[in-house]
């Protein structure tokens, strides 16, 4: 397909009249811009133009045009390799810039679309509800804010500053460490650059969490509210609470929160586990024993938990025998 330079040039001039001038000139401009060796590029394009003319006469202009575009694209790697080999350092730099731009533009677009974070646009309390923060801690506690951009992406919260502005006088540091020295409500402003959010700090210090040390529930029995009492320095019940109830072994029992915020303990399977209630910086631990229903406790094995429903009227008495055992009942 290679021809001598003279015949090629002549053919190219002739063919040019019938070839899409626009396509050929664009390809030439592109190759020139990419820094391809002019002689090499001319040779390749000359061959293409000659073949295009033949195909246009034989297959029609439309088919020949598509063939020309396809072949020009197929030649691009060779032309780029030629440019790298023969071009001056300046052209190589320009070529590198073009390649980098071609590769980076889609990458930047993808990152901006799926993973990019913008400037801080919103400050939201990360404790409690949107603008209300219940603090049951007696010791100093760090307030937490979430910094979001306009698209809702979470940004680092470094640099958020806090300031007490009204209400009960409780110490609030500029970094957001608050000490609820007394019960009451305070207004605190959190700011990050031009963003400012007003928070209502509900100081409800809890001095003690009181609870039964043991809970006994039955599989399939009624769901029980976790029985505990949080009290303040005067021994009065505190009702606004923020904390956590955890069960050590969730195969034995689980805690579910209702829409009203009640913490319900549900028996899952016979066995023993532990339950921990943590409110502010105080907590209470409970043993939880879950029993399975049975008709009699007689013959109970070590580790078993059995529950026998009993109904008696006046004068009634029921009796069962428990075997001697080195273990406690």
């Amino acid at each position: 397909m290679r021809a001598s330079f003279a015949s090629r040039a002549a053919a190219r001039v002739r063919a040019r009249s019938s070839v899409e001038d626009g396509i050929a000139s664009k390809v030439e401009c592109l190759l020139e811009a990419l820094g391809a060796d002019p002689a090499f590029a001319d040779a390749v394009l000359g061959d293409l133009t000659e073949e295009h003319a033949r195909r246009a006469a034989r297959d029609g202009a439309r088919t020949a045009r598509w063939w020309y575009v396809g072949e020009a694209l197929r030649s691009a790697p060779h032309l780029l390799a030629s440019a790298v080999r023969h071009a001056s350092w300046r052209r190589r730099a320009r070529l590198s810039a073009y390649i980098a731009a071609v590769l980076l533009a889609p990458a930047v677009a993808v990152i901006a679309l799926f993973g990019g974070n913008g400037l801080p646009a919103q400050l939201v309390a990360d404790m409690g509800s949107a603008a209300d923060i219940v603090v049951n801690n007696v010791r100093p506690v760090q307030l937490a804010m979430r910094v979001l951009d306009a698209a809702g992406h979470v940004l680092p919260d470094t640099g958020v500053r806090y300031r007490w502005s009204a209400g009960v006088p409780v110490p609030v540091s500029s970094t957001g460490v608050v000490t609820c020295t007394q019960p009451g409500d305070a207004t605190v402003h959190a700011s990050l650059g031009p963003l400012t959010t007003r928070l209502t700090l509900r100081c409800r210090p809890v001095l003690d969490v009181r609870a039964f040390r043991m809970l006994n529930i039955v599989v399939g029995g009624p769901v029980a509210e976790v029985p505990f009492l949080a009290v303040d320095a005067d021994g009065q019940r505190v009702t606004q609470l923020r904390g956590q109830i955890t069960v050590e072994d969730s195969s034995v029992a689980t805690v579910n929160v209702t829409a009203e915020g009640k913490q319900l303990l549900r028996a899952r399977a016979a066995g023993s586990t532990a339950l921990n209630v943590r409110i502010g910086d105080r907590d209470a631990h409970m043993e939880v024993h879950v029993y399975e229903r049975a008709s009699t406790p007689e013959g109970i094995r070590p580790g078993q938990h059995l529950a026998v429903p009993v109904q008696v009227r006046g004068g009634d008495m029921r009796q069962w025998r428990l075997a001697a055992s080195p273990e406690l009942y």
Binding site: N216, V218, G221, S272, H289, Y291, P297, I300, R301, P302, G303, Q304, H305, L306, A307, V308, P309, V310, Q311, V312, R313, G314, G315, W320, L322, S325, P326, E327, L328, Y329
Partner: peptide, 16 residues
């Protein structure tokens, strides 16, 4: 004495 009373006898034998 005529009123029936209900409850559940729960027995746990500690493991060995």
């Amino acid at each position: 004495q005529t009123r029936e009373v209900n409850g559940t006898l729960a027995v746990w034998r500690q493991p060995q």
